[in-house]
Write a protein that binds this DNA or RNA. Structure first.
Length: 818
DNA sequence: ATCTCCCGCCATATG
DNA sequence: CATATGGCGGGAGAT
């Protein structure tokens, strides 16, 4: 169905083709508005181009880039020249590209400075713009709407906008990120991926249960537009709250980037999420298509702003269009993290409670009344697991339960503290920044007066130094040793994204013989093959879990102490039988995961106030890689037998360790530890560690574990050489360059830090499994009573990791630039 | 064929 | 009511 107008336009084009120099032809679409329009001639096009790249352009630097980067312009110019040369006619009509929203946006942006002086505001008159840029008004709206969503412009009145430039961008992005986190986009993304996954795996299957209620009842499908407090949006009346679809969509789209790690979002996923929010599960094809179209529009504008760029994500399934965030990294949403330069806003005062253990734990829970902290989708799983545990604990307080109790407490602790904290504060940017900060060979130097709180963390090692720094923590009571392997990101060997390992929460199905309701579903979805392929973007198993009341968190620590202390874990230690079959089922894993953050509970730093945050950030820079608060799960050998699924999975991302890195590890870790231990006062790390251990019940309340626990570097007998194969990696090809990017998409935390937790079983028989059966080696304890978990290089130079580590093969994913 | 996404109709909002 | 906005989806150029 062609409308008259359309036909007119078409005919016009035809005419133009035949009569290149025909003057009479004017832009028909809007005869009235479009003034004695320019004829469609090469000249007019040229003029247009020139105007786009002319001196009129303000920020030359960017403009320059623009003209350089936008090959289209050049191309067009070239074409035009040809045209002018009398080449056949309109081979190159005002090609579609020349009219692209992206180019138009460039032209639009060129009219205004990125950072207009606050003194003189520039106003935008749509009429002028449309006229000068020779575009239909409609197009300008598209651009303006997106800009509005970023608060780069705001509407004053009809036809009238104010240009803010990028001044507000940092704040806007920060706000968007925050909202994005609150909206649990990470989880939603995971869910979508999960569905995809199940879809292809399962003929059709029952997808009812777990996807029935996408998210908690507390979903926010509101069509809310994120406003910026400071940013004036005068003309309240003008600022109708309705119909902001494009704006809202734009914001949400941006949010997706800001919350995901890696910051790559495929159109498909974005569209689904944006749709899903309004109507749950609306597999409407046309709606989807429309959404995609809109996203392209938005993406074009965002691209012009250089906030994103197009890439392609290649999976087994094929190439899918996606976009990668290339804009500024957004600081953690917590109010006062001031990194000198960029802070534009004044930071509000900070809390000042005395950090006792209790306080600490409380402090870690930002939201008391309301549940605000972000949770990785996988956390939901974990939550469920915890719930199960709790149930068991409450119902049957018997020995087997005890273990669960401690585990429960531990998980709870992690879940509610570190994770949330980590999630809310950690950013890819930070990570990278940290990587950059730590010099390749020197242990992080402590800034003299600058950052007192930034004490040497336990076993901190510069990322570039060692790959693994083992820390063995003797368990006072049970005698079980826990080894925490922190795996600094191998930035040096890998790339910007260099996650090491990931800890993944696993639903504890079949623990102590009790069948988990999810276990079935879980098994169903996982297949070694499938996981291997899809590892990267694996969605967590079931996300149906609901948030639990926070009440629990408050008391958990206390209860934790009581219970844990009351539990004689020694009893639990038994000889572990080598049973494989039970482990087979454990091959089920959930690719999604998160890192266990290393949070530091700084003591008595009320005075630090705003510094606190800063210190936290800073310390993270150096310690994050090897924070003591890594998941250490007391798991008696006996337990292992019956437990099908360990509490955590460790996902190795790129485990190809350079031979030297291993060698270096011990040394580094030592030095690090030593340095950290020198301080008389317990450093944040150790205190945090103690805190955690006590809560877990691994040590009595009074006992303190020295900052540098007995470290032992043990030669590791490892296997699973194919880890590297199974581990997921993302290749991002930018242009011709291909990078080895580790992506752990699950969760957004991935890629930053990794930690390997090895559970040491004192009495476990030594037995090494076949390398290939990586997933089946979970928690296999090869070492004998005296065997220490370790990492070693194989003859072939490949590093191997063994014992008690869980490997989750990552699906290979490739991201390539066009 | 698929990916992009321009074009412009037309429902609504605004003044 | 005249315009300003902007949702929406057909369908055509790009690849």
């Amino acid at each position: 169905l062609k409308t008259p107008l359309k036909q007119a336009a078409t005919s016009q084009l035809v005419l133009t083709e035949r009569q290149p120099d025909c003057q009479p032809l004017t832009t028909p679409p809007k005869p009235k508005e479009t003034p004695p329009a320019d004829p469609w001639t090469p000249t007019s096009n040229l003029k247009m181009l020139i105007s786009a790249a002319s001196p009129e352009i303000r920020s030359r630097e960017q403009r320059r880039q623009l003209s350089d980067s936008s090959s289209e312009v050049l191309q067009t110019k070239h074409c035009l020249q040809e045209h002018l040369l009398g080449d056949e006619y309109e081979k190159s009509q005002p090609s579609r590209k020349e009219k692209s929203l992206g180019l138009l946006c460039h032209k639009f942006l060129a009219r205004y400075p990125d950072y207009p002086s606050p003194s003189q505001k520039s106003y935008i008159c749509l009429d002028e713009v449309t006229e000068e840029l020779h575009v239909e008004r409609r197009r300008i709206y598209d651009i303006v709407n997106v800009l509005e969503s970023l608060h780069m412009v705001s509407r004053l009145a009809r036809n009238r906008y104010v240009w803010h430039g990028r001044h507000n961008l940092p704040q806007t992005l920060q706000a968007l990120k925050k909202v994005g986190e609150e909206n649990k986009y990470i989880q939603q993304i995971q869910m979508i991926k999960k569905r995809e996954y199940e879809h292809e795996f399962d003929p059709e299957g029952e997808r009812n249960e777990d996807m029935a209620s996408p998210f908690g009842s507390s979903e926010q499908s509101e069509m809310s537009f994120v406003e910026l407090p400071g940013v004036e949006f005068r003309a309240a009346s003008v600022n109708g709250r309705k119909y902001k679809s494009l704006r809202v969509m734009s914001q949400k789209f941006v949010m997706l980037f800001l919350v995901s790690t890696p910051q790559i979002v495929s159109l498909e996923v974005a569209a689904k999420i944006l749709i899903g929010e309004d109507q749950l599960e609306d597999l409407d094809k046309s709606k989807f298509k429309t959404k995609i179209r809109r996203l392209y529009d938005i993406a074009n504008v965002l691209s012009s702003l250089k906030l994103i760029k197009k890439v392609h994500v290649t999976e087994e399934r094929g190439r899918k269009p996606a976009f990668k965030w290339t804009g500024p990294e957004v600081l953690p949403n917590t109010q006062d993290i001031k990194l000198e330069a960029t802070s534009t806003t004044c930071s509000p005062p900070v809390s000042e409670s005395i950090p006792s253990k209790e306080q600490c734990s409380k402090a870690l829970f930002p939201s008391k009344g309301k549940q605000n902290f972000t949770r990785h989708s996988s956390l939901i799983k974990l939550v469920k697991s915890i719930e199960n545990d709790r149930r068991k604990i409450q119902s049957a307080p018997t020995s087997p339960v005890k273990i669960n109790a401690s585990r429960y407490l531990f998980l709870t602790f992690l879940l509610e503290t570190s994770f949330s904290l980590f999630l809310s504060h950690m950013t890819t940017e930070e990570m990278q920044m940290k990587c950059a900060l730590s010099s390749p060979e020197a242990v992080p130097k402590s800034e003299p007066s600058q950052q007192p709180a930034l004490s040497q963390p336990l076993g901190v090692c510069p990322a570039s130094h060692s790959s693994v720094s083992p820390v063995i923590l003797p368990h006072p009571q049970s005698g079980v040793s826990y080894a925490i392997y922190l795996h600094p990101s191998q930035a040096h060997t890998v790339t910007t994204y260099s996650p090491g390992f990931m800890l993944q929460p696993l639903p504890c199905a079949n623990i102590t013989g009790i069948k988990s309701n999810n276990s079935k579903a879980l098994n169903k979805v996982t297949t070694e093959e499938g996981d291997t392929q899809r590892g990267t973007e694996e969605p967590p198993k079931s996300l149906a879990a609901e948030e639990r009341p926070d009440r629990k968190s408050e008391t958990s620590s206390q209860r934790c102490l009581k219970r844990s202390q009351a539990l004689p874990e020694n009893n639990l230690i038994k000889r572990r039988k080598t049973d494989e079959e039970s482990l087979d089922t454990s091959s089920t894993f959930f690719p999604s995961g998160y890192l266990i953050p290393l949070t530091h509970c700084t003591h008595g730093n009320k005075a630090e106030g705003s510094n606190k945050e800063k210190a936290g950030v800073c310390s993270l820079q150096h310690t994050a890689y090897s924070s003591p608060i890594t998941g250490v799960i007391p798991m008696p050998a006996s337990e292992l037998k019956t437990v099908n699924i360990p509490a955590f999975h460790i996902t190795p991302l790129n485990i190809m360790l350079s031979p030297n890195s291993i060698a270096a590890a011990p040394v580094l870790s030592n030095s690090c530890l030593n340095s950290s231990s020198t301080s008389s006062a317990p450093n944040p790390s150790s205190s945090a560690l103690n805190f955690m251990l006590q809560h877990i019940g691994l040590i009595p309340a009074g006992v303190q574990v020295p900052a540098n626990p007995v470290l032992q570097h043990v030669p590791v007998s490892s296997q699973s050489e194919n880890i590297s194969h199974s581990s997921g990696s993302t290749n991002v090809q930018e242009g011709k360059v291909s990078k080895n990017i580790l992506q752990l998409d699950h969760g957004g935390l991935s890629g930053k830090y990794g930690a390997v937790i090895l559970l040491q079983q004192p009495s476990a028989p030594k037995e090494l499994q076949e390398p290939q059966a990586v997933t089946e080696n979970f928690f296999r304890t090869p070492g004998g009573p005296n065997t220490e978990p370790s990492l070693s290089a194989n003859s072939d130079g490949t590093q191997r990791i063994s014992q008690g580590t869980l490997y989750i093969p990552q699906r290979k994913l490739e991201v390539s630039e066009d």
